[in-house]
Each structure stands twice: as structure tokens, then as C-alpha cells.
Design a binder for these strands. Structure first.
Lengths: 245, 245
DNA sequence: GAGTGGTCTAGACCACCCG
DNA sequence: GGGTGGTCTAGACCACTCG
């Protein structure tokens, strides 16, 4: 280990990325023991034939990811492998269903242009009553209804949104087509009971638990581009996240 | 703006931190317009009288925080201010109650040493049946019961934990006293119904919605130090988080 | 005091984006 | 082609930790 690691310079890929991925592979394939101390940065830099700054950039990324940790004045060490990593990533329904091998489908219940209710307006940075596009859908996973989702999108930013086939792709695909890249979201999660309408749509008894989510989605420049109420069947849905102190 | 920003070198505080906080203040106090383009990095570096690498380090932090964004080949820009920031931080019950001006109290229901159930063992990286400390508590906010929390902690790591006054401080304070700094947690959130026991403890009807959480807490080096089931009153509790694509 | 990570410099060249 | 961010170097000194 840690010998003759000189990289063959690969076209286009930054050195720190190559080093990072190289080390990550060593870690994930178990070639480094838990708690093991790594060589000092200076030495690693020599082995990889890069400057210390570049080496640090690679190490920083791995520390960020939680694979390594540093103790000032002592050294850099392997973390214990944790079960789950990389939560709090924003993924869309089709993407995550595909990863899990689930057959995803969307049925549009409402697609309309309406004046914005107060809460929607304030989330989207609009005046109350400014026009928004409302799209209410039912989501199915392997033909089982799992969520009712109520999207609100500023009409002024996406005047042609309703021309799209909203059952054919995820809403975000269309938002991106119109020039807004989905970047971050802030969401709040609650436990609620299903009312009779939700019960009917989700094929559960009314009164059964619902994981209820309010979410505001922002583009790269911070513009709010979507506000959503999301009602998820309690027995079919959970949310996993990673927190840092 | 952007003139004569030369920093008086302040004792001990790294330059990139001073620059970062300086810019953050400008942003938060509205001295920079939304969407405004910043001067190029080279120029900023000159104004602050540092090298470009140091300037970049400061800017990187602000981009990370979502206050700025970059477009390669074009420039660095102000983001729109977003309502909420800095979620997905791990906070303890007493800390967050204090911030909100809520009077927090903990009542211990169970404090015992037991063989670990399978699920607990696997979360904590133990063999099934290895001893764990189980601490079950009721949390009150302004005398209203809000959560029932069931903690499991490896006995071997904290053999003297039960000597502590567990109602006097948060469990994490004791874990840190014994040498383990709480660093990260991975949690999964579900919607459930209250059973009769929970109903009684939380003073709600059985069948009412519960925001149920399973959480594994890790120390700095990745050692799992706590696994917890957490039952929160649906009408008193929500979780807010920020997601990134 | 030796070992190690944390910060910082003053350059350099490249890749990308725009008019 | 000019402006800009992305990457990289080869040094340097400081701050922290440990024996």
C-alpha cells in the first residue's frame, strides 16, 4: 500500500479527482484498515507526484464525504465505514425509482392556472394572487399509489409549461428545458392523517398516517421555481437524511 | 463597494475566514444586489491584499453555503436570499429548545442494561445480544409532552453512563464527557400511528399521527455510539431539511 | 523537539463562455 | 480574442500534539 502510485496523466480529468477516486477505491475495497493512519500529506503528495496543495484538495473531498478524518498535529485517519452515505441529495421520483428497479408512473389530476394562495405566494416570492400553474398528480410505484403531489410554479417564469406532456417525464425535466436548473430545496416534514379524498386516491382508509411534506425548490441563482405539497402513504414511504454537527 | 477592503490582520483568525465573514456581512446586510456580478477573483484578491488561492478559499465557502454561485468563464454572482439556511445540522433537544425560548425537560422512564436486539446490534456494529444501555425518556416542551425517545448505547464504550443524572443534561453531553464527540447522524423518518402506550405518555388519543424517527449517531472517527427510536407528536413536531442536487 | 496538519504566496496554464 | 473561473506548482511559516 501507498507505494508507486504515480498516476498516468489522464486526459481532461483533474489530478485531484483522479487521486480522490483512487483513494476512495482503496478504502471501499477494504485495502485500508479501519482507523489506520495515512502517511503524512507531504509523503502522499510525493507518491502521487503532485504538490501538497493538490493532495490536500483530494483529501479534503474525502474528509467532507466522511471517509477520512484529520486530527491536527497528529495525522489523517480512516473512518469506520458507515452504513449509509450521501443522503440529503435531491433526487426526482423517476430517477430514484429507476435506481431501485421500481416502475414509476405519474397521473395528472389537475393542471391549471390559478391565482396564488398566500402561503404559495410567500414561498415563491410572489404577491398573493399572482398567477401560478398548479399541477396536482398521483404517483404510482409498481402500480401502487404512493403519493399525491400538488405543485405550484410561477406562471410568469414558465408560461408554456402546460403545453408539455406532464405524464411523460418529471416536472423538473420541463423546468430545466425552460432554462432553470433545479439546484436546492428546503422541505419540512410532518406526520398527518389521511382525509377521505387522500384515502380514496391512495387507496387507504381515511385516518391512516401520511408523511406530509412542504417543499420549496430553488434554481442555481436562488430563484424559487416550485412550491409543493406532498402527501405520502405512511406505509410506503420514508425519508433518510444525514445530519452533521 | 469593493474598494479599500484591506484587512487589518487580526490575531489568530485565518485570512480566508475574515474575508468570508466580511463578504457574508455585506451580503446579509444587503450591500450587494441580488444577481449582482462580483469583480473577478484576481481583482478581489488584490483588494483584500491576499493571493488568489486564499480569495478562492473564502469564495468557495460562500458558494458552499449557497450565498454565491459561479458560472465558469463568466463570473461569480450573488444568489437570491433564501428563507431558510443551515438545516441538516445536528442539534440536541436542549440546545434547540433554548434557541426558541422553550422550557425543555427530560423525564427518564427506563434506564437499564440489556442484551441488544438484532436491529440495535446491527446499527451499532455489535453482535446480537452484546450488552447495551437502554435509556427511555419522555421529553417535554413547556410542560407539554412532545416525544418519547428510546436510546441504545454500547455498554462497553460507556460502562459508567448510568451513574450520571440523565435528567440534568442531554445524553450527548455525557457521551462527550466519556470521550466521544458526536459528529454525524443518519436518520430515517416515518409517519406512524400512536399505540395506546404512546398515547398515554404523549397525552393524545391512540391512532393519532406520530412522526417516527430511527437514528444512528456517529463519533468523529465513524464509531456508532447511539441508536435511537424517537416518537414525536405529529401536532407538535416537524423536521426541516435542505437538499442539494 | 519532531511530526503533522492549517494557512498562505506568487506565479502559471488551461477550459469555458461571450461578443 | 478577451475575460473569467478551474487547476496546479514549489515553496514557506505557523499551530497543534505527542513523547
Amino acid at each position: 500500500m501507498f507505494n508507486n502510485k504515480r498516476l498516468i496523466s489522464i486526459e481532461g480529468i483533474p489530478l485531484y479527482v483522479q487521486i480522490r477516486e483512487n483513494l476512495k477505491k482503496d478504502i471501499q475495497e477494504g485495502r485500508l484498515a479501519i482507523g489506520q493512519k495515512l502517511p503524512p500529506e507531504e509523503e502522499l503528495a510525493q507518491q502521487f507526484n503532485v504538490s501538497r496543495m493538490t493532495m490536500r484538495r483530494a483529501l479534503n473531498d474525502l474528509v467532507e464525504e466522511g471517509l477520512l478524518y484529520r486530527k491536527q498535529g497528529r495525522g489523517t485517519y480512516m473512518s469506520r465505514p458507515q452504513i449509509d452515505r450521501d443522503h440529503t441529495r435531491l433526487t426526482n421520483f423517476f430517477e430514484s425509482a429507476k435506481e431501485k428497479g421500481i416502475n414509476a408512473a405519474i397521473r395528472v389530476l389537475i393542471a391549471d392556472i390559478v391565482p396564488s394562495p398566500l402561503k404559495v405566494a410567500s414561498a415563491l416570492g410572489l404577491e398573493e394572487g399572482e398567477l401560478v400553474i398548479r399541477i396536482k398528480t398521483l404517483r404510482l410505484a409498481n402500480d401502487i399509489p404512493v403519493s399525491v403531489v400538488d405543485h405550484y410554479v410561477p406562471y410568469q417564469l414558465f408560461p408554456h409549461l402546460l403545453d408539455c406532456d406532464l405524464e411523460a417525464a418529471h416536472l423538473w425535466d420541463f423546468l430545466e428545458e425552460f432554462g432553470f436548473r433545479v439546484k436546492t430545496a428546503v422541505q419540512t416534514v410532518y406526520a398527518r392523517e389521511a382525509d377521505s379524498e387522500l384515502g380514496e386516491l391512495l387507496k387507504i382508509e381515511s385516518g391512516e398516517p401520511i408523511l406530509f411534506k412542504e417543499r420549496t425548490v430553488y434554481a442555481e441563482d436562488g430563484t424559487p421555481i416550485e412550491f409543493t405539497y406532498c402527501y405520502n402513504r405512511g406505509d410506503q414511504y420514508s425519508i433518510t437524511m444525514k445530519l452533521t454537527r
